[in-house]
Design a protein around this nucleic acid. Structure first.
Length: 489
RNA sequence: GGCGGCGUAGCCAAGUGGCUAAGGCAGUGGUCUGCAAAACCAUUAUUCAGCGGUUCGAAUCCGCUCGCCGCCUCCA
């Protein structure tokens, strides 16, 4: 089995063939740190977290680099608004970013370089571009000459003529070509500044990724990723810079994920429809967000709604309930000498992992992979339902192994990583918090109902059950007594 | 104007030439239960926006039409 990935550059799915066999080098564009992260950032971080976990699961070594843009116009402007320095602002939001990422259970990349710590590398790169006649100084700025790179537009699948027809390009007297972009910006008074051969200034946005990826991953590496909105101009410009200097292919494969939308519109600050990660996490467990995000293929748009999150929570709870059921098997009562689970069921269980890997090998199809997890959960549930009280040790072992497979595969998406009973209890408490009733009162009513039922006073017993149901609490009478859950509205 | 994507059941969402069109949520019938709930079993798209075409065969390929979205400016 080979891993196939959709490559934006070629427009096709292609087998992953690392430059160094067995070792994948991956660069992902991280955040510009000037504000709290929204669900779109979460999708990006989660998508690549899943990709890295999967590649490692498949036995590949991965070097994962994700940068921080900690100097840029937005940071400077926001710092001025908040009467602080760009350095302080950027550092603060990098910390906030880590808070969010940690809560989402996202593994840290291997390297997280910051732009401001690589000014020297950027200056070197710009100088090389000037030497090669691909960049020019104009006033206090340095620009990249797009005409010097004949393949400009190959990633976005456009050419310079198409783009100029758009005519949304601001006129800048200093540029030779309207599409030329800045590599080095002469600084204005009061702005952060670094010395350079072209005078004091700061780097343009695109050059940092070219400089840092070259330093940490080399001139040619395997995968470069980011959101679809980065295809043009950011990634196009990175290619122009990096290949302009090296004359070699930059990234062999480009992965771009889709947007998170709200009511089918892209989130944006101007529309006021963006939600921060921490907003979401006050209402939902991090794994619910993960489940939601991975319920759609990473390249497709994903529409956020309360309903979708409720559905995701219900689905995730179903998987957890399956694991909890296996955890709760009464092992000590095992006396059956012979297992009863059919060979057919065992074969189906054994085939799950291959099916899962096949789905994931196909451009990380997590939606399909989730469906396979549900197939496994369904079998486990059925076997548990049919399991006699004195189940055979062999059968219990099969169920334990199946539940282990479920958890192991789900963990690639960062799911089912908590103790099942604890997770379900947590969800229950979270939902209970939104209701006008507390646990003590519920237990008291259950106690009262138990007495009624013992006396076969079904009428009053049912009354209590209906009363609780009206307040959002569902009762379940099981062999081990009555338990309750919060009804999902 | 240029480029690209999408339109599959009540909702969400896989499937990109050929076994019965995955899975989740919601719904319905049944088993279980004093009655319920959960779980299980069964069931819910003869059909994949519409119209034409290619093919022995298409949701899947091609053309056109309609609708929605994104990029071309900072953006995950």
């Amino acid at each position: 089995m080979t891993i196939k990935i959709f490559n934006t550059l070629s427009g096709k799915k292609q087998p992953l063939e690392p430059v160094e066999p067995g070792h994948v080098r991956l660069y992902v564009c991280g955040i510009t740190s000037y504000d709290y992260c929204h669900i779109g950032h979460a999708r990006s971080a989660l998508a690549f977290d899943m990709i890295v976990r999967y590649l490692r699961y498949r036995g590949l070594r991965v070097t994962y680099v994700r940068n921080f843009t900690d100097i840029d116009d937005k940071i400077i402007n926001r710092a001025a608004e908040q009467q602080t320095t760009p350095e302080e602002l950027a550092a603060r939001f990098i910390n906030e970013f880590y808070t969010d990422m940690d809560r989402l259970g996202i593994d840290r990349p291997d390297l997280e370089p910051k732009a401001t710590e690589h000014i020297g590398e950027m200056i070197d790169l710009i100088a090389e571009l000037i030497d090669r006649g691909m960049a020019y100084q104009s006033g206090a700025d340095v620009y990249y000459a797009v005409n010097s790179f004949p393949e400009y537009g190959k990633l976005a699948h456009r050419n310079l003529d198409d783009m100029q027809a758009g005519a949304r390009i601001s006129v800048n007297e200093q540029k030779r070509h309207p599409m030329d972009f800045v590599l080095w910006k002469g600084s204005k008074p009061g702005e952060p500044t670094w010395d350079s051969p072209w005078g004091p200034g700061r780097p343009g946005w695109h050059i940092e990724c070219s400089a840092m990826s070259r330093k940490y991953l080399g001139e040619t590496f395997d995968i470069h990723g980011g959101g679809k909105d980065l295809i043009f101009p950011h990634h196009e410009n990175e290619i122009a810079q990096s290949e302009g200097v090296s004359g070699k292919p930059f990234a062999n494969c480009w992965i771009h994920h889709g947007f998170v939308t709200i009511r089918d519109e892209k989130m944006s600050k101007s529309l006021g429809n963006f939600l921060t990660i921490r907003d979401i996490l006050t209402h939902y467990h991090p794994e619910v967000l993960r489940f939601f995000i991975f319920s759609t293929h990473y390249r497709n748009p994903l529409d956020f709604s309360e309903t979708a999150m409720q559905d995701a929570a219900a689905g995730l709870e179903r998987l957890y309930a399956c694991v909890a059921q296996v955890d709760a098997i009464a092992r000590e009562k095992s006396t059956d000498p012979e297992g009863r689970i059919s060979t057919k069921d065992i074969e189906t269980i054994n085939a799950i992992e291959d099916r899962f890997l096949q789905a994931m090998d196909n451009d990380f199809n997590t939606a399909q992979a989730q469906a396979i997890l549900f197939d496994l959960a369904k079998i486990i549930n059925r076997l548990c339902t049919d399991l006699p009280a004195a189940a055979a040790a062999a059968d219990i072992a099969i169920l334990d192994r199946a539940a282990g497979t479920l958890k192991r595969l789900a963990a690639i998406m960062g799911l089912l990583r908590e103790d099942a009973a604890a997770f379900l209890k947590g969800q229950k408490e979270k939902m209970l918090a939104g209701l006008d009733i507390d646990e003590e009162r519920i237990e008291a009513l259950i106690g009262e109902r138990l007495a009624c039922r013992a006396a076969k006073n079904w009428t009053r017993g049912d009354e209590i059950r209906d009363e609780l149901l009206a307040r959002g609490i569902e009762l379940k009478d099981g062999p081990g007594g009555t338990t309750w859950s919060v009804r999902r509205s």
